[in-house]
Design a protein around this nucleic acid. Structure first.
Length: 364
DNA sequence: AAATTTGTCAACCGCATTCCA
DNA sequence: TTGGAATGCGGTTGACAAATT
């Protein structure tokens, strides 16, 4: 346990504020080449005038290829609400149940949307309860039960049902599903550092459960905070060892489209030869190797919408790359205003295509 | 059309926790 | 066992955009 805390960095010598595309590019390419074993020294090595913390935050919250951006689905919001009832403001824990979503993003959504929404709901419920009480208390006690049954109109009944629903939600205990592993960003970074076989699969260990997106298991309420540390074994917080992941998930949306369509791609990694970055490099069909792989996990289809379509996902992936490149100003807009991948592209401006295979310590 | 308010979200700050010599 | 260093986490801020007056 440390005592004195050395300053994170010399604030007068580091840049703060929004990241520029050039800085993003520098950070991404550095991490791709060298991994991130030491955040503090990373900015120096990468030639960035940034604090290590800032680099870490930027990578985790924004630049990781698996970060899912865009509006939260109703399903995701419901999951957050339920998890928050159980876990409280443990944003990183909550985020571990929502692959592709960062704790920061979830925290923002909670503070800007969900909290207010729930407050409104509570207020409404409280009003109705108060009204019920004032109305009932004006009658003699002997008549209360008969009053309740006779006075309660449809509207009141609906509100009561709503109340019960909420009560039920709050008290509900959730059984973790064994077939749906959970994730944890702590583990993502740490477990990945302990493994040396497939760098990308390690990094992807956090996302091995993308199939759980549509069917998230919620932990039971934790009786004592201290127990949290011991729950790692064989419990809902048992995230499995390093590199047990069978696949990597890329979650993305159409960044500039305000699209609600969040897509998830699972890349099977059972075959360690499959190289994520090579696949990205193979831009004629970045996912050709996936499609040719023996089979996608069964749960993939279950987790996807019924009209799941590989080709659509490939298109979305291309979109994602395009959007990111556009966002970073790496691709000149074409006549239709959209950057192009493949032969039309200026490869010197597209780091995804020019990167070499990832180093073994990627994700360390 | 301009001014003001509200909403959103990336980034920062600082404490807590973990790691390691 | 101790204490410094590194990292993780949650609260908060501030810039910008959108909505409202």
């Amino acid at each position: 346990m440390g005592r004195g805390r050395a300053p994170c960095c010399d604030k007068s010598k580091v840049k703060t504020g929004p990241w520029s595309p050039a800085e993003d590019l520098r950070l991404i390419s550095f991490i791709h080449k060298n991994g991130y074993s030491n955040w503090r020294s990373l900015p120096i090595q990468a030639g960035l005038s940034r604090c290590g913390k800032s680099c870490r935050l930027r990578w985790i919250n924004y630049l990781r290829p698996d970060v899912k951006r865009g509006n939260f689905t109703n399903e995701e919001e419901e999951t957050i609400i339920k998890l928050h009832q159980t876990l409280g403001n443990k944003w990183s824990k909550i985020a571990s149940y929502l692959p592709g979503r960062t704790d920061n993003e979830i925290k923002n959504v909670w503070n800007t949307h969900l909290k207010k929404r729930l407050a409104k709901k509570d207020e409404k419920n409280h009003k109705n309860q108060t009204n019920d009480f004032s109305r009932t208390s004006s009658f003699s006690t002997s008549s209360t039960s008969s009053f309740m049954s006779s006075y309660g109109n449809n509207e009141d009944t609906e509100e009561l049902v709503l109340d019960e629903g909420q009560e039920g939600l709050a008290n509900k205990s959730y059984e973790p599903k064994e077939d749906i592993p959970t994730t944890d960003h702590d583990h993502e970074l740490k477990e990945s550092s302990s493994s040396s076989n497939s760098s990308i699969s390690c990094d992807a260990s956090d996302y091995s459960n993308s199939s759980a997106r549509a069917d998230v298991s919620i932990p039971e309420p934790e009786p004592e905070p201290e127990q949290e540390e011991e729950e790692e074994e064989g419990s809902l917080f048992n995230f499995g060892g390093p590199c047990e992941a069978d696949n990597v998930t890329i979650a993305y949306d159409q960044v500039n489209n305000n699209s609600d369509d969040h897509q998830v791609i699972e890349i099977p990694l059972e075959d360690s030869d499959i190289d994520f970055w090579d696949m990205l490099d193979n831009l004629d069909d970045p996912f050709q190797s996936i499609n040719e792989s023996p089979q996608l996990p069964q749960e993939l289809e279950a987790s996807q919408s019924s009209n799941y379509d590989h080709h659509t996902e490939i298109e979305y992936c291309r979109e994602w790359l395009r959007d990111l490149e556009n966002e970073l100003g790496l691709v000149e807009a074409t006549s239709d205003g959209v950057g192009q991948l493949g032969s039309e592209i200026d490869h010197s401006k597209c780091y995804f295509q020019t990167w070499p295979s990832p180093p073994q310590n990627f994700g360390v």
